[in-house]
Design a protein around this nucleic acid. Structure first.
Length: 826
DNA sequence: ATCTCCCGCCATATG
DNA sequence: CATATGGCGGGAGAT
């Protein structure tokens, strides 16, 4: 093979090395900036903007201008910031158009900028590769990389040679759904678990031939020829129905995405991905070069996916140091519950934009069965889980040699992580809901004064209570509410019991109010390796810097709501010390390197601005527009989700937060039906006879909210649906229509269950009370004000608001991202 | 040194 | 056959 060298960067002389491949074109070697590149500082935001904008076609430009502006501005700023960081010593100057400028990611951005995220039927756009390559000044080859990945997501499809059609993100939800499904069928989870396990064992005894179960558990592993996943509606008439279609990049991209969709912490390390994608076949196929190649391709794919904001780079830290990984930041893809078609009647509120809506409705049905009888046991995932646990149990019993301890831990973890994960997925919505109303009530009753409260707060106290107050005034709420340092947006964080052991933390400036829970045990494993220690940190770690000095205030959570703020302050400072202690403790722990570390993760409920206007009549087109607007999720005020990012998790410690939503939904039957849960509860809340803090908190909250009469205690395993909705929920006094209010409560519950917090409450009303005169304004106002925060959009924050597609298609669904950072498999 | 990943050769598929 | 696609891996910038 002839040796062609990559031209040196400044290769003024390099051309000679190259074979004359493009005779008439310029010297080929992308000379140091031969042409049109603006002589001026290439990295100023403006120049970059210009470039981006000029790249867009005129019509798109006008339509998308604002979006582009904010979008690219953010990015450019980030890039700039990033750059700035790197060139710290030097007087941050224009760096040569270095490699970064040619990165696939940037190129992809430019590419994407040309087309609307949600093109309407009218603006169906075609992609001519020749044009693109010319306009973007890039080699054709690169465009293929991008297009292939986009194709794998059905965002584009090939029409003919040189010609693609742009679909935008319309198909995304379906695609992801499909991919997830295939991923599940493909048993990726198991494969990942096996990989980790093997790795672990490997480390334990360096040469032992561990092949025991490789064969067994992966019996069918090889559909390695998993074909390209198609979508029913989207036909790929491209004549290229065969051959390479089943080959690499496209399929690889799909598989990669699948990995995210099926794995529990939606974090996938490159290494794992590569191994799995290489073909799980021969484990010891230490084919180094193959692996390297795979990694290279994955980077390519990842770059594109990152541009799409579906994933973002993080790092996973295990015993063996940092490993590059990526975290899913795209829309949440719910597992496809049963396939039975749901009656479309209940979706009258808004025309289903995508298939995902019915499925959400369905989900809500499962969550809140109308007949108390049916419970979670019917959920296929649960059944699977139970089965797998039984399997594990069997394994344990039949495995003579293996140390029981490990196995037990394994099962325990599985139970906890998987089981709780499953329930958390549902329950977090309920908690969000509870929190919501709890705050309303609390605000009302305690009449907290907020410095920022608006004048008209009096008439509608709860409605106008700026969220910023929450942290202080609602400290009695179980969920932790965190104000966002940048935006003033607040978040509630729920910590999963199993992760609440040692919590690493959140960025300073956050205020935490943990529950007093002396006995959080978590899983004390002697086998610390079983649980990989994972920390993730943002690729671009620009975070955490905000309010560097303001220490985190952790507060011993009080049981009484009537606490005064001064008391709180006191406690806060106490908590501070406490926090430090814990921090110290943790570092000790780390230095020992022996003990298990649990990670924080939580459910962030960003209490941000809500959307305005009546979205109910959001037509497709409107929606497209709206969505486009929200696309630059970074700064969108209506972005529903702001996942907690690692950098925020690494500076401080939070004392064991013990909030276990799990307790909410457990009915006696469901417990019986789901041993998983009871186990998990047991474990998390510890077998001590002390009343379960969570349950007391819950009781308190429920009473407070008015969902249950004072004095009544919801048992440890209350069933939410059995709790009567109190008609005296007086928080509706401003509406003057209690009934409506009540109805809303219920409908809201439904909505919460199905997709997360609905911001658009008015849309929810018809669901249950089609005939009731709905007052779009009123509920709107409530939610709006409730979620409103004094601060502006979370500008500058690196918190990517994931949510894209999902949020768009569900009209402002505010969902609570799950941020479990532990490794739930081993 | 390791992580990223750009570049472009060249095998294949397409038309 | 000419082109369009895209697999692939060397090796150079970034860290």
């Amino acid at each position: 093979r002839n040796v062609l060298k990559t031209p040196l960067k400044q290769g003024a002389t390099s051309p000679l090395v190259l074979t004359g491949r493009q005779p008439d074109c310029q010297p080929l070697t992308t000379p140091p900036k031969p042409k049109e590149s603006p002589p001026a500082d290439p990295w100023t935001p403006t120049s970059n903007l210009k470039m981006l904008i000029s790249a867009a076609s005129p019509e798109i430009r006008s339509r998308e201008q604002s979006k582009q502006l904010s979008n690219s501005l953010t990015e450019v700023l980030q890039a700039k910031h990033c750059l700035q960081e790197h060139l710290l010593g030097d007087e941050y100057e224009k760096s040569q158009p270095s490699r970064k400028e040619k990165s696939l990611g940037l190129l992809c951005h430019k590419f994407l900028a040309r087309y609307p995220d949600y093109p309407s039927a009218a603006q169906k756009s075609y992609i001519c590769l020749d044009e693109v390559t010319e306009e973007l000044h890039v080699e054709r080859r690169r465009i293929y990389d991008i297009v292939n990945v986009l194709e794998s997501l059905h965002m584009v499809s090939r029409l003919a040679r040189n010609r693609y059609i742009w679909h935008g993100r319309h198909n995304l939800p379906q695609t992801l759904q499909a991919l997830r499904k295939v991923g599940e069928e493909n048993k990726y989870i198991q494969q990942i678990q096996m990989l980790k396990k093997r790795e672990y064992e490997h480390e334990f005894d360096p040469d032992g031939e561990r092949k025991e179960e490789t064969a067994s558990s992966l019996g069918s592993s090889e559909q390695s020829e998993m074909p390209f996943v198609e979508l029913p509606g989207v036909e790929f008439r491209a004549a290229s129905v065969n051959g390479r279609k089943y080959k690499s990049l496209r399929v690889m991209s799909q598989k990669f995405v699948m990995l995210f969709l099926v794995s529990t912490p939606q974090i996938v390390s490159l290494e794992v991905a590569a191994k799995i994608l290489i073909g799980e076949d021969q484990l010891e196929d230490l084919d180094k070069s193959k692996f390297k190649t795979k990694i290279r391709r994955l980077y390519d794919i990842a770059n594109v996916l990152s541009s799409l904001k579906l994933i973002k780079k993080v790092h996973v830290t295990e015993e063996r140091g940092r490993k590059p990984a990526f975290k899913w930041t795209g829309p949440e893809v719910l597992p496809n519950i049963q396939d039975t078609k749901l009656e479309a009647t209940s979706t009258t509120c808004s025309p289903p934009i995508s298939e995902s809506i019915p499925s959400k409705v369905h989900c809500s049905k499962n969550l809140f069965p109308s007949k108390g009888k049916q419970n979670f046991t019917r959920h296929s995932s649960l059944i699977k889980l139970v089965k797998s646990i039984e399997n594990d149990r069997r394994k344990i019993q039949s495995a003579p040699a293996s140390p029981v301890k490990i196995s037990t831990n394994f099962v325990l973890q599985k139970i906890i992580f998987q089981g709780t994960h499953f329930y958390m997925k549902k329950l977090k919505y309920i908690w969000a809901f509870c929190l919501f109303f709890f705050c309303l009530r609390t605000a009302e009753e305690t009449q907290m004064k907020c410095a920022l409260s608006s004048p008209e707060a009096a008439p509608k106290p709860e409605a106008n209570q700026p969220l910023g107050v929450c942290p202080a005034s609602y400290s009695s709420a179980s969920p932790v509410i965190l104000p966002h340092p940048h935006s003033g947006v607040s978040y509630a964080i729920y910590l999963h019991p199993s992760q609440a052991h040692t919590v690493t933390t959140y960025s300073p400036g956050f205020m935490l109010q943990p529950l007093p829970c002396a006995n959080v045990t978590g899983i004390k494993s002697n086998n610390s390796k079983v649980l990989n220690k994972i920390t993730t940190e943002e690729g671009d770690s620009q975070i955490a810097v905000a309010e560097p000095t303001k220490p985190l205030a952790a507060e011993e959570r009080p049981k009484m709501k009537s606490e005064t703020s001064s008391q709180r302050c006191l406690k806060r400072s106490q908590a501070l010390q406490e926090n430090n202690l814990i921090k110290r403790h943790r570092s000790d722990e780390e230095s020992l390197g022996a003990s298990l570390t649990f990670f924080p993760s939580g459910y962030l409920i960003p209490l941000t601005h809500c959307t305005h206007g009546n979205k109910t009549e959001c037509t497709n087109k409107d929606k497209a527009g709206m969505c486009s607007l929200q696309h630059p999720t970074y700064s969108s005020p209506i972005t529903g989700v702001i996942p907690m990012t690692a950098p925020e998790l690494k500076t401080v410690n939070i004392p064991a937060l013990h909030i276990t939503p799990l307790n909410i939904m457990l009915s006696p039957n469901s417990v019986a039906a789901a041993p998983v849960l009871s186990n998990s509860c047991l474990n998390s809340s510890n077998a001590s006879s002390a009343p379960n803090p969570s349950s007391s908190a819950l009781n308190f909250m429920l009473q407070h909210i008015g969902l249950i009469p004072a004095g009544v205690q919801v048992p440890a395993n209350p069933v939410l649906q059995h709790v009567p909705v109190s008609s005296q929920a007086e928080n509706g006094h401003n509406s003057g229509n209690t009934n409506v209010q009540e109805g809303k409560v219920r409908t809201n519950l439904l909505h919460l269950g199905r997709g997360g917090l609905r911001r658009d409450y008015s849309a929810a009303i018809p669901l249950q009370q089609p005939s009731a005169p709905k007052e779009p304004q009123e509920p709107q106002a409530v939610t709006e004000n409730f979620f409103c925060t004094p601060g502006g959009p979370n500008s500058g924050s690196s918190l990517p608001a994931n949510s894209d597609g999902a949020e768009k298609t569900s009209q402002g669904t505010l969902y609570i991202p799950q941020r479990k950072l532990e490794v739930s498999e081993d």
